[in-house]
C-alpha cells in the first residue's frame, strides 16, 4: 500500500457550552489512501462536520493531529494556513458557495489567483476543468443563471483547480434533486478513479452506498469503518 494521503490521529474537540463541556470529537483516528472515495455518515451532532472542519483547517482541534501528505497541518502556524488550504484541500459545500457576482469561469479562476498562478495558465486550467465538468457552454454564466447541478459542478471544478491532495465535500448533494445527485456522485467517483482522493460527509445513505468506504460516526466517535 502507498503512504496514506490523510492520517487522523487521536483527534479530539471539546466545546464549552456555558460550563458544560461538549465532546464533539473524541479520540478519532483513521487513514485515507490516495485515490480513495469514501464517505463519513452519521446523525446530526455526531461530529462529522466538526471532523471535516479540522481536516480542512477551518477549525483547530483540542488535541490530536491531522497529517496531509505527511505534513502535520494541525501544527501549522496561522500564517501558513492559507497556503495549506490552497495546496492541500479542495472544498465542495452543500450550498455551492459560489461568488454570486462572478461567472462560472471567474469562480474557478479566482481560486487560482490566490495561489499566484499566472493568468494564461489560470485561463487554460479553468477552461479545461469546466469542459471536463460538461460546462463548456456555461462558463460565462453567473451562478444565478445556473442550475443546482451546474453550480455544484462549477464548485467541484474550483475545488480541483489548485491540484489539492484531498477534496472535502460537505453534503455536496444536500441541495439537489435525485437525478442531479446521482450525476454528482458519479462525477466524484470518476475523479477518484483518476487518482483524486475524495472525502464526502453526508447523511444520505444512497450517496454513502456509492462510495468505496463508509465511516459511521456517533457521539464524536467512529462507530464503524466499512470498506
Amino acid at each position: 500500500m502507498d503512504e496514506p494521503v490523510l492520517r487522523v490521529r487521536n483527534l479530539t474537540k471539546t466545546y464549552m457550552q456555558g460550563k458544560i463541556p461538549v465532546h464533539a470529537l473524541n479520540d478519532v483516528s483513521f487513514d485515507v489512501e490516495k485515490g480513495e472515495f469514501m464517505s463519513i455518515v452519521g446523525p446530526s451532532g455526531s461530529g462529522k462536520s466538526t471532523l471535516l472542519s479540522m481536516i480542512g483547517l477551518l477549525d483547530k482541534p483540542t488535541s490530536g493531529s491531522v497529517f496531509i501528505d505527511d505534513k502535520e497541518i494541525t501544527k501549522a502556524k496561522e500564517s501558513e494556513v492559507p497556503k495549506l488550504r490552497r495546496e492541500k484541500i479542495g472544498f465542495v459545500f452543500q450550498h455551492f458557495n459560489l461568488i454570486p457576482t462572478l461567472t462560472a469561469f471567474e469562480n474557478v479562476d479566482v481560486a487560482m489567483r490566490f495561489a499566484r498562478v499566472p493568468k494564461n495558465e489560470r485561463k487554460q486550467r479553468a477552461v479545461e476543468l469546466l469542459t471536463q465538468m460538461g460546462l463548456a457552454d456555461r462558463m460565462k454564466h453567473k451562478p444565478s443563471e445556473l442550475s443546482g447541478g451546474e453550480q455544484q459542478r462549477t464548485a467541484i471544478a474550483r475545488a480541483l483547480s489548485n491540484h489539492p491532495a484531498i477534496i472535502l465535500a460537505d453534503e455536496p448533494t444536500g441541495e439537489v434533486d435525485t437525478k442531479t445527485r446521482d450525476m454528482i456522485v458519479n462525477l466524484l467517483r470518476k475523479l477518484s478513479e483518476e487518482g483524486h482522493t475524495i472525502l464526502v460527509v453526508t447523511h444520505d445513505t444512497a450517496v454513502a452506498q456509492q462510495t468505496g468506504r463508509i465511516i459511521t460516526m456517533r457521539d464524536g466517535m467512529i462507530e464503524s469503518d466499512k470498506t
Partner: peptide
Amino acid sequence: LLKALGADTRD
C-alpha cells in the same frame, strides 16, 4: 469562502 479557498490575509 475566499479564506477557505486559501486567500491570504493580505489578499
